[in-house]
């Protein structure tokens, strides 16, 4: 699966930002190093970016920088997991994770149970896959186990979740980013989502 790329020049034209801004944001780590993809073209070396990621990110920075300083923006965007905890009943009340998911995966915990950010993230990811209609509840249970076992191994480095199915049998993979994965022809990739983005989305919902 190839990601759609955008060249640096097109990006600047489209978003109206300047080279200086782009490099300043890179220095502040608002734009991760992995997104700068160097490729040789007929005009020499050019830099490309994953189109969907970079456009969303620039949009976000431009929106936030009016009322926050760049360092504050950097804090909000950094992929590291915040020390954020929340009670189960608050998750339900604020509709961050749907009731169905909470009942199924955390039904035995009493309402005041406090979840760490990781756990909220897992539930959130499962919830979004379920709501998209890609995944069944049984598969959700396996996904939860897989994330619990392996997600901490990335230690905050960016990673992606790939959900694939072959002949009706599903499986999950967590891969580091950027990476290239190829499958045989029978495999259908049901969903591929960036955990980093999920973290960001969740963070903006929580904070």
């Amino acid at each position: 699966m190839e990601r759609e790329l955008i060249s640096k020049k097109d990006l600047l034209d489209q978003t109206g930002i300047s080279y200086g801004q782009l490099y300043r944001w890179k220095r502040k780590q608002l734009i991760p190093e992995e997104w700068f993809i160097r490729k040789s073209t007929f005009t020499g070396q050019e830099t490309f970016f994953p189109k969907d990621l970079i456009l969303a990110r620039i949009d976000k920075i431009l929106n936030m920088k009016d009322d926050l300083s760049l360092d504050q923006v950097a804090g909000k965007l950094s992929p590291s997991l915040p020390d954020y905890e929340m009670r189960k009943c608050d998750l339900m009340k604020r509709n961050i994770v749907s009731n169905v998911v909470l009942q199924r995966f955390a039904g035995q915990d009493p309402d005041p149970t406090v979840y760490a950010f990781e756990m909220i993230l897992y539930l959130y990811v499962i919830d979004s896959l379920l709501q998209a209609g890609d995944m069944s509840l049984e598969e959700g249970e396996r996904l939860l186990a897989a994330m619990r076992d392996h997600f901490p191994n990335f230690e905050g480095k960016p990673c992606e979740l790939i959900f694939l199915r072959k002949m009706g049998v599903s499986s999950f993979a967590l891969v580091s980013v950027p990476s290239q994965v190829y499958f045989d022809s029978g495999v259908k990739i049901v969903a591929r989502l960036s955990m980093t983005e999920a973290i960001e989305r969740l963070k903006s919902k929580l904070i």
Binding site: S18, Y23, G44
Partner: peptide, 8 residues
């Protein structure tokens, strides 16, 4: 250098 990019 290979490329120089900037505002001014």
């Amino acid at each position: 250098t290979g490329t120089i990019e900037g505002d001014d």
